[in-house]
């Protein structure tokens, strides 16, 4: 009687187990790498109705972030500017540019320009811009170097771990509130100076960033 299975089949069960371990490793690695905001959110750069360049306005021209996002210090929501804000200058500068047609249309009709939201937090997260800005957390910590972006791009993951990194060690990022919109500012004495000054701010202002669930999931 001929053999149904060749002799090599004896090794098969072990080989299958080894293969499944390898496959499990690959799946785990892929999930860790891909199923996280570091992959899912970072890099999102939607096409906007007007090709507004932050690199030109905030970078080259040196216009303060708050010129347009004027409620960021007063409100939890950092506002997208009204079309009047654009028209403050663009009623005269490049007043006939076809690029700016949606702005002029919005200014005349009162209907908002359909800007596309780049940083969209899930609704079960509470985030308040004004408290962060008032205590010297710079825009750059969560939004990156917007002053160098031609097209705004989701630069940081804004994941729960990202929030907690900062909430556990606020001294690493706190700076004088006067400098929050200076995106290129780094502490002149480097990380050591930053932590020294940061600890002072944490003490003087009694900064206690919540780490409990209900701090942000309220």
């Amino acid at each position: 009687m001929s053999k149904l299975f060749p002799k090599s089949a004896n090794r098969l069960p072990l080989q299958i187990v080894i293969y499944l371990v390898v496959l499990g490793g690959i799946v785990t690695a892929a999930t860790t790498y891909y199923a996280t905001p570091k992959y899912i959110r970072v890099g999102y750069a939607p096409v906007q109705p007007v090709e507004f360049s932050h690199a030109l306005h905030a970078g080259n021209l040196g216009i303060d972030c708050r010129y347009c996002h004027s409620n960021v210090e007063k409100s939890g929501h950092s506002n997208v500017p009204t079309s009047q804000t654009c028209m403050n200058c663009h009623s005269i500068i490049k007043a006939n540019s076809p690029q700016l047609e949606p702005i002029r249309e919005s200014f005349a009709s009162g209907d908002p320009v359909p800007w596309v939201n780049v940083h969209v937090m899930p609704n079960y997260v509470y985030f308040n811009h004004s408290v962060h800005v008032a205590r010297g957390v710079s825009c750059v910590e969560c939004h990156g170097r917007v002053d160098q972006m031609e097209v705004v791009r989701h630069e940081k993951p804004l994941s729960m771990g990202f929030c907690l990194d900062c909430h556990r060690a606020p001294e690493k990022v706190l700076r004088s509130p006067e400098l929050v919109t200076k995106l290129d500012w780094v502490h002149p004495k480097g990380m050591q100076g930053q932590i020294e000054d940061g600890k002072k701010f944490v003490h003087d202002w009694n900064v206690k960033p919540p780490q409990s669930c209900s701090g942000c999931h309220r």
């Binding site: 905001p37 570091k38 992959y39 890099g43 999102y44 750069a45 969209v120 899930p122 609704n123 989701h154």
Partner: peptide, 22 residues
Amino acid sequence: LGFRGCTSQRPPLEVFPDMDRQ
């Protein structure tokens, strides 16, 4: 799927959109 940090014009994936968008 590419790598982390690749620029994309597609909005981020939401696995449970009914919780993300209440």
